[in-house]
C-alpha cells in the first residue's frame, strides 16, 4: 500500500511539493512515517517540531496509518 502525505508551510518548501506519495511498503505508523520522511529530507529534522495529523487530528507516534487516511505533516504553527 502507498500513502499520500500533504505538506504545508516550511515542510512543503523542504520537500518541494504540496503532496508526496510514499510507495509500498509504506510506513505503518506515524513514527515510521516521520522517520522515513526525515531520512529522505534531513532538513525536516532541523525544525523546532514536526507533528503528523491523521484525519484532521494530531496523532501520536504509535498511531497506525491507512491508505484511506488524510495524512499531513504539521510544522510549528504560527497563527494569530
Amino acid at each position: 500500500m502507498s500513502l499520500k502525505v500533504a505538506l504545508f508551510g516550511i515542510t512543503r518548501d523542504i520537500v518541494g511539493t504540496s503532496v508526496i506519495e510514499l510507495p509500498a511498503p509504506a510506513p505503518a505508523t506515524v513514527g515510521e512515517l516521520l522517520a522515513e520522511m526525515r531520512k529522505q529530507y534531513p532538513a525536516l529534522g532541523e525544525l523546532r517540531s514536526c507533528a503528523v495529523a491523521v484525519n484532521n487530528e494530531y496523532a501520536t507516534h504509535d498511531h497506525p496509518l491507512r491508505t484511506t487516511d488524510e495524512i499531513a505533516l504539521i510544522p510549528p504553527v504560527a497563527g494569530g
Partner: peptide, 17 residues
C-alpha cells in the same frame, strides 16, 4: 494549523519554524 511567513526587504522566513 495556520502558518505565517514574514516578508522582509531581503527575503522571507517561516515564523517559529
Amino acid at each position: 494549523t495556520i502558518w505565517k511567513r514574514e516578508e522582509y526587504e531581503d527575503g522571507t522566513e517561516w515564523v517559529a519554524a
